[in-house]
Design a binder for these strands. Structure first.
Length: 293
DNA sequence: CCCCAGGCTTTAC
DNA sequence: GTAAAGCCTGGG
């Protein structure tokens, strides 16, 4: 990894497979937004940051080396060779095209609690509304923070959400998911499950634990493992992935578990990366509903 | 007005 | 175990 300190922040140089637009628009995160200068600004946990593709690399604004190494290297999974993964997956002709299209996608390593709640909200929902609901939750119940005269809100803690009435969560647009979030928050706040110990367990065991939370089914569980625990072997099947899989590999009407099993078999340890390429590809190529931001 | 959207839970076979 | 209905909300 090659980076230098500049007056603006940290400049990551010679990085392969890092395309901000593809990373932030591929459905894995909800608190990153495009800035007028063509970069992106996002909040992760208690931190917010602005990044932008500049000529020689990726610029991380207003942070030092210490902060970069301590947090953002892991967050952006900078130690992983995505070129290698892409090469392996590209042996499949469909994946080859999808990976070319979504070139530069990386799997973020997001906070587990935040990802858990975010993907409970994502059920039967669309990205625009998911983002809106999450921002309102953060605004109402998250810690108020400032950086460089700018106000932003951290994602609410389990305790803070657990003490709310369901009605307060519904007021943020959660709808019927409010009860799921509330019950989940109470479980986590109660301390029976340590979300941050799950990562080192195997995929199957983690999935079963995640499935025990209300509002978490197979798809949401896979998303949580993929987007907050770097479990690249999972394959979340949502409607778009179902469409693209049925279009290229399987007959229409294939049950979700069958699609899941088929995909994990042919894509193996990088099934999650295949899912990201396919999702992004499907949504933009096969797409109706461009899901305008 | 009806239909749908990055699904889950519950109920009924 | 599998299939179908119902669900908040916002938008087409």
């Amino acid at each position: 990894m090659n980076y230098i300190k500049t007056k603006d922040g940290i400049l990551l140089k010679d990085v392969q497979e890092f395309e901000p637009e593809h990373i932030f628009e591929c459905g894995q995160c909800f608190r990153w937004n495009r800035t007028p200068d063509g970069g992106y600004k996002g909040t992760a946990g208690k931190r917010n940051i602005r990044i932008k593709r500049v000529d020689p690399g990726i610029l991380f604004y207003n942070i030092g080396e210490r902060e970069f190494c301590k947090y953002w290297v892991d967050y952006f999974d900078l130690g992983r060779d995505y070129g290698y993964i892409k090469k392996i997956l590209s042996e499949d002709p469909v994946l080859k095209k999808a990976a070319e299209y979504g070139s530069g996608i990386r799997i973020l390593k997001q906070d587990v609690w935040e990802t858990l709640v975010s993907f409970i909200i994502s059920a039967n929902n669309n990205i625009k509304r998911i983002k809106n609901t999450i921002e309102r939750l953060c605004h109402d119940f998250g810690e108020k923070l400032t950086s460089k005269d700018e106000i932003y809100f951290a994602f609410p803690t389990p305790d803070r959400l657990a003490e709310q009435a369901a009605q307060n969560l519904r007021a943020c647009g959660c709808g019927y998911r409010a009860e799921y979030i509330l019950r989940t928050a109470k479980i986590v706040a109660g301390g029976d499950v340590n979300l941050y110990s799950l990562e080192k367990m195997n995929t199957k065991d983690v999935r079963n634990i995640l499935l025990s939370f209300p509002g978490v089914g197979p798809k949401v569980a896979d998303c949580i493992m993929l987007f907050s625990m770097a479990k690249l072997d999972v394959f979340p099947v949502d409607v778009w992935v179902k469409r693209v899989m049925e279009h290229f590999y399987l007959r229409e009407g294939t049950p979700l578990p069958k699609i899941h099993g088929f995909a994990t078999e042919i894509f193996g340890p990088f099934a999650g990366m295949a899912q990201q390429y396919l999702f992004y590809y499907a949504k933009n190529i096969m797409g109706r509903t461009p899901d305008k931001r």
